[in-house]
Nucleic acid binder design. Structure first.
Length: 733
DNA sequence: CTAGGGTTAG
C-alpha cells in the first residue's frame, strides 16, 4: 500500500528530527492565523506564509495544516490528503488528524484504510488514535469493523485509557449492542461522568430508561451532560413528571443548566402544563443572558402555548426579530392546539407576507384549522402549494389531513380525489374517508369503502367503526348498524367505547326504538355521557316521548349540570305538547341560574375571507344590504308557501328566543350575505356551530330552489346538501 | 501539538 505519494506542488521531504524547539513553533504568529481562517482560499494564503517562514518543514506545522483541512468545517479533506501525501514520514499526530478527518466525513470507512497505512509504515497507534477510529466505526452501519478495532485496542494495550473505553462503549451502544457496551464499562478500571453517560444514552435510545436511571444514580460526579441525558431520556418516553423532578434535583446539586437542559425542561413543562416551572425557566433564561437564543425562544413559545397562555406565547413570538420556520410553526401549532383556528390562519397569513416557506409541519397545523373553519378556498390553495413543492416527500399524514379538510369543508368530491390519488393508503386515510362520507350522509359509499378496505387487507380499528356506525346513524340504517356493532366485537375483538354506544343509541333513538336503546344503555360497562342522554332526549323530542324525555333530562343534568342545551331540549318537548307553563318554568329557572344558551353562529367563506354571523347580527359592514336581502328571501319564502314551524319555538318567553320567530337565525344571515356577494349559481358553503333548527332547515331547502343555488351546510353533527328544494339528509337528522 | 458522552416543532 502506498499511503505516501508525492504531490506535484509540494516537494519538501524532511525527517521529523529536524523540528526546532516546540516553544518557538507554538508561539509563531502564522499559527494564530489558522484559528481565524474561514475559507479554503484564506487557508491557501496562510499555507504560503508557512512556506515563506520555513514552517512547513516541521512535523508540528504540518500537523496543524492537516488538522485544519481535515477537521475544520472551512477545510477540505481532499486538500488535507494532498498535504498528507506530500509528507515523507508523517508522525502519529498527522495520521491521527487524517483519521479524525475521515471520521467526520461522509466516508468514515476510509479511516480504516488510513489506520492500516499507519500500521504499514510501522507507526504504533496511540490513545488518541482509537477515539477517532472508533467514531468512524460508530458511523458505519455494520458492527464488524468496530469489533476488529476493539481487538486492536487490546493488541496495543490501550483498553484502560478512559477516552478509548468511552469510545468503545459509545460505539457498541450506538449499534444497539448494549451487552458489549456494558462489558467494556464493567471491565474498565476508571469511569467518569462521560463514560457513564455514554452507556446511559445507549440504554435510553433502546428504551431501557430504568437501567439508565440505575446507572445514573451511581455516577460519582455528574456533569451537566449526564443530567441532560437522563432528563431528556424521561422526556423522550413521555415521563415528563420524572424529567421535571430530576431537574429539581439537578438544581439542588448546584449544576448549572445549559441550553439542552432548558430545552428538555421546557418541553416537559409544555407536555404537563407545568407553567410554574416554565416561568422559572423563563426568568432564569433572561437572567443568564440566553434570552436571544432562538431555540430557547421557540421552546418557550411552545411551552406557553401548550400551557394555555396564548397571549404570553404571542408576546414572545412578536418579540423575536429573526424568526425561523420553527418559530412560525410553534405559534401556528399553539393556536391550532388551543382550537384558536382564526389566529392560527392569521399567523399563517403573516408567514406568507414575510416570505417564509412553509413545510409539512406548517401544513399539518394549518390544514386542521381550515377544516374546522370550513375555509375551502384556503384549503385548496394549501393543497396546490403542497402539490407544487412537496410532492417529493410522500407524507401520508398530510394527505389524510387534506382528505379530512375537504370533507369538513363540504367538498366531498375533492376528498375522494385525494384519497384515490394516494399511492399507499394508511389506516388513518381509510378512516377519515369513511367518516367523511358518513358526515355527508352517504352511508352506502361509506359502507362500500369499509368492505373494500377489509378486502385490501386493512384491519379496521375502533375509529373505523365510529365512522361506519355514524354512517348508519346518519343514514337511518338500523339493521346494518346492529350488524356492524356485533361484528365489531365478534370479528375484530373491539370492545365498544362511549362513541360506539353513542352512535347506536342515537340510531335506535331516532328510529323510535326506545326499549332497545335503553337496553343498550343498561348493557354499557361505563357510565353513559352527556352525548348519550342528549341523543335520547333529542329522540324523545322527535317522537314526542314525554316520560322518557324527563328521565333522560334528569340523567343529562347529572352528568352535565352546566349544559343549557339539556334545558332547551326539554323545553322543546314541553312546547311540542303545548305545555307552555313548563316551558316558562324552565325559562325562569335558567334565568335565575344565569345560564345562557350557547349563541348560535354561522360562518361563510367568500373570496377566501371568513364572515361570521350571530343571531340578529348587525355588525357586518354590508349589514343593510344583507337585511334587505333577508326581507326579499322571507317575502319569496312566504309566497312559496313556507310556514314557520312553531313547535320548537319558545313563544312569548325570552327576548333571545323571540328572534327565532323573526327568522334572523345566523344561518339565514350567512345565506343572505352569500346571495348578495357571489355570482348567481355559485354554491354556498356555510358552517354552523350548533345543530340546524327545523325552521332553518325547511327554509334553506326552499331557498335552494327559489334562488337556484346549491347550499352545503355543516352543522355540529353532519352535512346537509340543499339542492332543488331537497336536502341530502332526507329530513332525517 | 490531537481525544470520549447529549439538541427545538407534530
Amino acid at each position: 500500500m502506498a499511503m505516501v505519494v508525492a504531490s506535484s506542488n509540494i516537494i519538501h521531504f524532511l525527517p521529523a528530527s529536524s523540528d526546532p524547539p516546540y516553544e518557538l513553533l507554538r508561539t509563531h504568529p502564522s499559527l494564530a492565523l489558522l484559528s481565524k481562517c474561514k475559507s479554503i482560499n484564506h487557508f491557501k494564503q496562510i499555507h504560503s506564509q508557512f512556506i515563506k517562514f520555513g514552517l512547513h518543514n516541521t512535523q508540528f506545522a504540518l500537523s496543524k495544516l492537516v488538522e485544519f483541512c481535515a477537521v475544520s468545517p472551512y477545510g477540505s479533506l481532499s486538500y488535507a490528503l494532498s498535504i498528507f501525501n506530500s509528507i515523507h514520514n508523517p508522525n502519529h499526530v498527522i495520521y491521527n488528524m487524517m483519521i479524525r478527518g475521515y471520521s467526520l466525513s461522509s466516508s468514515p470507512n476510509l479511516a480504516i484504510n488510513c489506520y492500516s497505512g499507519m500500521l504499514f509504515i510501522g507507526l504504533e497507534p496511540n490513545s488518541y488514535t482509537f477515539p477517532f477510529l472508533l467514531k468512524s466505526c460508530t458511523k458505519l452501519s455494520t458492527a464488524n469493523a468496530g469489533k476488529q478495532v476493539h481487538g486492536q485496542v487490546f493488541k496495543f494495550g490501550l483498553e484502560n485509557d478512559v477516552y478509548v473505553h468511552t469510545s468503545l462503549i459509545n460505539m457498541y451502544a450506538q449499534h444497539g449492542n448494549l451487552d458489549d457496551a456494558r462489558m467494556v464499562f464493567d471491565k474498565s478500571n476508571f469511569r467518569d461522568a462521560v463514560s457513564f453517560t455514554a452507556l446511559i444514552t445507549g440504554y435510553i435510545s433502546r428504551g431501557y430508561v430504568d437501567n439508565a436511571r440505575e446507572l445514573f444514580d451511581t455516577i460519582p460526579v455528574r456533569d451537566v451532560v449526564s443530567w441532560n441525558a437522563m432528563i431528556s431520556g424521561y422526556a423522550q418516553i413521555g415521563q415528563f413528571d420524572k424529567a421535571l423532578s430530576l431537574f429539581q434535583e439537578m438544581k439542588k446539586a448546584k449544576v448549572t443548566p445549559d441550553v439542552s437542559t432548558l430545552l428538555s425542561v421546557l418541553s416537559s413543562c409544555a407536555h404537563t402544563g407545568g407553567i410554574e416551572t416554565g416561568n422559572w425557566v423563563r426568568s432564569w433564561i433572561e437572567e443568564h443572558g440566553h434570552a436571544s437564543n432562538l431555540r430557547l425562544g421557540n421552546a418557550m413559545i411552545d411551552m406557553y402555548a401548550k400551557c394555555g397562555d396564548l397571549s404570553m406565547a404571542r408576546n414572545l413570538f412578536d418579540g423575536i426579530q429573526e424568526k425561523d420556520l420553527v418559530s412560525w410553526n410553534v405559534m401556528i401549532g399553539g393556536y391550532t392546539h388551543a382550537s384558536n383556528f382564526r389566529d392560527a390562519l392569521e399567523i399563517f397569513r403573516l408567514m406568507q407576507i414575510n416570505n417564509v416557506a412553509p413545510n409539512d409541519v406548517t401544513f399539518l397545523n394549518v390544514i386542521p384549522a381550515c377544516a374546522h373553519l370550513g375555509t375551502l378556498d384556503l384549503g385548496k390553495w394549501i393543497h396546490a402549494c403542497i402539490d407544487k413543492h412537496y410532492h417529493d416527500f410522500p407524507n401520508e399524514t398530510l394527505w389524510t389531513s387534506l382528505i379530512n379538510m375537504y370533507a369538513k369543508c363540504g367538498n366531498i368530491e375533492a376528498a375522494k380525489q385525494v384519497f384515490s390519488g394516494m399511492e399507499t393508503k394508511s389506516l388513518a386515510s381509510w378512516n377519515v374517508m369513511i367518516s367523511g362520507l358518513a358526515m355527508h350522509g352517504d352511508a352506502s359509499r361509506a359502507i362500500e369503502l369499509f368492505s373494500q378496505m377489509t378486502k385490501e387487507g386493512f384491519r379496521p380499528d375502533e375509529i373505523t367503526y365510529v365512522g361506519v356506525l355514524s354512517a348508519c346513524c346518519h343514514g337511518g340504517l338500523v339493521n346494518l348498524g346492529r350488524e356492524f356493532f356485533i361484528s365489531m366485537m365478534k370479528d375484530y375483538n373491539i370492545s365498544p367505547q362511549l362513541q360506539h354506544y353513542g352512535c347506536m343509541i342515537d340510531l335506535l333513538g331516532k328510529a323510535g326504538l326506545f326499549d332497545e336503546a335503553m337496553a343498550l344503555i343498561e348493557q354499557m360497562e361505563m357510565e353513559p355521557d352527556g352525548a348519550i342522554w342528549g341523543s335520547i332526549l333529542g329522540a324523545c323530542r322527535i317522537h314526542k316521548n314525554l316520560e322518557l324525555g324527563e328521565y333522560a333530562f334528569k340523567n343529562l343534568r347529572e352528568v352535565e349540570p352546566d349544559n343549557p342545551g339539556a334545558y332547551v331540549l326539554l323545553s322543546n318537548i314541553y312546547a311540542g305538547f303545548g305545555k307552555w307553563d313548563d316551558v316558562a318554568r324552565i325559562r325562569t329557572f335558567l334565568n335565575d341560574k344565569g345560564m345562557k344558551k350557547v349563541p348560535g353562529s354561522t360562518s361563510i367563506e367568500v373570496d377566501s375571507i371568513v364572515h361570521e354571523f350571530l343571531v340578529s347580527d348587525r355588525t357586518h359592514p354590508r349589514s343593510d344590504e344583507i337585511y334587505r336581502m333577508l326581507d326579499e328571501v322571507d317575502r319569496l319564502l312566504e309566497m312559496a308557501g313556507h310556514v314557520p314551524d312553531t313547535s320548537e319555538v319558545y313563544y312569548d318567553v325570552d327576548e333571545e328566543w323571540k328572534e327565532d320567530v323573526l327568522c334572523q337565525h345566523s344561518e339565514k344571515l350567512a345565506i343572505a350575505f352569500g346571495l348578495i356577494s357571489t355570482k348567481p349559481g355559485t354554491t354556498l358553503r356555510i358552517v354552523k356551530n350548533l345543530r340546524v333548527c327545523g325552521n332553518c332547515h325547511s327554509a334553506t331547502k326552499m331557498i335552494s330552489k327559489i334562488f337556484n343555488r346549491e347550499i352545503i351546510a355543516r352543522d355540529r353533527n353532519r352535512f346537509h346538501h340543499f339542492k332543488d328544494g331537497y336536502c341530502s339528509c332526507r329530513d332525517y337528522w
